[in-house]
Design a protein around this nucleic acid. Sequence first.
DNA 1: TATTGTTATACTCTATAACTATA
DNA 2: TATAGTTATAGAGTATAACAATA
Lengths: 157, 157
Amino acid sequence: MPDDALQTTEDAPIKLGELTNGLGFLIRIAQVKLFENFFEHLGEYGLKPGEFTVLWVIGLNPGLRQGTVANTLHIKPAHMTKLTGRLVERGLVSRATPADDRRAVRLSLTPEGQKFVDSKKDAFLNHNFDEKEALSPEEAEQLISLLRKFTGLNACP
Amino acid sequence: MPDDALQTTEDAPIKLGELTNGLGFLIRIAQVKLFENFFEHLGEYGLKPGEFTVLWVIGLNPGLRQGTVANTLHIKPAHMTKLTGRLVERGLVSRATPADDRRAVRLSLTPEGQKFVDSKKDAFLNHNFDEKEALSPEEAEQLISLLRKFTGLNACP
DNA sequence: TATTGTTATACTCTATAACTATA
DNA sequence: TATAGTTATAGAGTATAACAATA
C-alpha cells in the first residue's frame, strides 16, 4: 500500500504520514478550499469572508456595538476599526454614537448594505458548496454538526 | 426558544442566525480554537503551525524540493522562501543545491531538526486536543474522516 | 523559451502598546 | 481607574510581478 500523496512536481510521491489525521492541517486545507469557493462566487464584489460575516451579523443585530461584533467574530479591535471603515466607505454600513455612552460606536446596515446582504445571503452561507464536492448532503450536515459541537457553538440544546 | 448567542458585553444576546450552519464560519472558529491549543502546547518553541508542518514533511521526505513542499502545503513560493530561511537560521533545516538541476533547492532536517520533530510529534499532531474538548474520541475520528473526504485527502482507500 | 527560486512591493490580518475620550 | 475605540508599529501570510540562473 503506497503512502498518501497530495500533489507534486517531483518524481516520487510525497509522504504526509499522520499529518492527514491532524485536525489542524485538515482544517487549514479545508479553509483554502472554502476560500477558493468564496472568491469564485462572491469575489466580484470585492468583499472577503470576514467582511461578509460582519455585514451579516450587523444585519441581524442592528445597532450592535463595534466591540461586540469584534468579540463575537474573534476580530481584534484594531483590525475591526479598519474593517468597519472599509464597509462605511463602501456605503454598506453606518456608524452612530449613542447618547448614553459616547465612547461606543453602534453599527447598522445602510439600505444598500441590507439589499446586498439579502441578495447574496444564499451564496454566502455556502449553501452552494454542494456543486460537485466530495460530500453528500448528509455528510455535509454531519460535518457541520460536528464542527458546531467542536467549536462550542451549539445554539440552544 | 432563544436565538443562538456566542459571547457579548452587550445587553441582548447576539443573533448569528444561519451563520452557525455556514461551513466557512465554523471552519474559521475551529481554526481559532486549534491555534490557541497549538500555542498553548508548542508556543514556547517559537514555531507556528505552518512551520511545524514544513518540518514534518521535510522529515518524511528528506531532500524534497522547496517548491514541492510549497505546492503540497499550499504555501506561496515567495512566502516559502522566507519560511525556509527562518528554519535554516534556527538550525533545524539545511539547504542543498543538487548537481543535476542547479536551480533547485533541496531541503533536509538537520540532526537538531530531526530531534525536535521526533520529540514534539505527538503534541503537534493534535493527539492532545482531547483534553476536555467537546468531542468524544469517536466523534473526533468522524470529524477528521469527513474533513479528509471534503479536502480530497483520502489517502489510499 | 520555460522553469526554479528569489527579491520587491503592497495589502490583509494579527499582536501590542500608547493614546483619546469618555465613564 | 477602568472602558471603548482609535492610532501606530511590527510581523506573518498572501498576491503579484519582475528578476537571475538554469534548463
